[in-house]
């Protein structure tokens, strides 16, 4: 009996192996199966994002250390910016930084030029932009044009201070850093209306906030 049992067992296992081999041969055949969403993204750690690539928010989050005032800013401006934006930030030839968003007077010597050839010179960051942080963030990423990233954060705070002083929203003694910059209130802010289609698209009927750091969900600022 044990011999027969052994033989039977051997026969059985052999058969199982044979079937398995046959099956595995079948599954080695190419077949078109797959996911329409291959999910090939590599895990990424938020902390690995270089500091320079972190969004600077209107509430001041991600603003760097450093500080700068109007007086130093005037020097930075004269050396690094005036050649393109004009001696006082109004003349151009490139974007106007000070004053008007279009309400320019008949006494303005550049009026005909502004109207016809340089419509962009009738807008200004100082007149329109609703948040002071945007000024710092943009100069930091893109200015001076053609040589972004060449200013120190102190110099950027300083030149931002000078632009805001010239726009009448910062006193001459004003000094900016990561805590004071978001406090500056900009003349444009009161006039902003969010485009109605965009407002509808970001309307969140019942936002469940899962991240404590991001409050004021859905607000326009």
């Amino acid at each position: 009996m044990p011999k027969i049992a052994l033989l039977a067992l051997i026969a059985f296992t052999t058969a199982v192996f044979a079937v398995n081999a046959a099956l595995s041969q079948v599954s080695d055949q190419p077949a078109i199966t797959g996911s329409p969403t291959p999910a090939l993204g590599q895990p990424f750690e938020e902390v690995d994002l270089p500091e320079a690539l972190r969004t600077i928010w209107p509430d001041g989050r991600n603003l760097p250390e450093g500080r700068g005032g109007v007086a130093e800013g005037a020097q930075v401006y004269a050396q690094q910016c005036a050649s393109c934006h004009g001696a006082t930030g109004v003349e151009g030839p490139n974007a106007r930084l000070i004053g008007s968003d279009g309400v320019f007077g008949f006494g303005d010597p550049l009026r005909p030029v502004r109207i016809n050839s340089h419509p962009i010179l009738i807008l200004s960051a100082g007149g329109m932009w609703p948040h002071a942080t945007s000024l710092f963030a943009y100069v930091r990423r893109a200015m001076p044009y053609g040589a972004p990233g060449t200013l120190t954060d102190n110099e950027i705070y300083a030149v931002t201070a000078w632009i805001l002083y010239r726009n009448g929203v910062l006193p001459k003694a004003g000094v900016l850093d990561r805590s004071s910059l978001p406090q500056v209130s900009m003349p444009g802010a009161a006039r902003v209306v969010l485009d109605p289609e965009t407002a509808a698209a970001v309307h969140h009927p019942n936002p469940t906030r899962s991240r404590g750091t991001q409050s004021n969900a859905g607000s326009a600022d």
């Binding site: 969004t55 600077i56 928010w57 209107p58 974007a95 968003d101 279009g102 962009i120 807008l123 200004s124 960051a125 329109m128 932009w129 609703p130 948040h131 942080t133 945007s134 963030a137 943009y138 893109a142 444009g188 969140h204 936002p207 906030r209 991240r211 991001q214 004021n216 969900a217 859905g218 607000s219 326009a220 600022d221």
Partner: peptide
């Protein structure tokens, strides 16, 4: 995000007075 960043172009050049 749950809010806009207010970048340069959405703040000025591409806004509509």
């Amino acid at each position: 995000a749950d809010r806009p960043a207010w970048s340069k172009d959405e703040s000025g050049l591409y806004a509509d007075p």
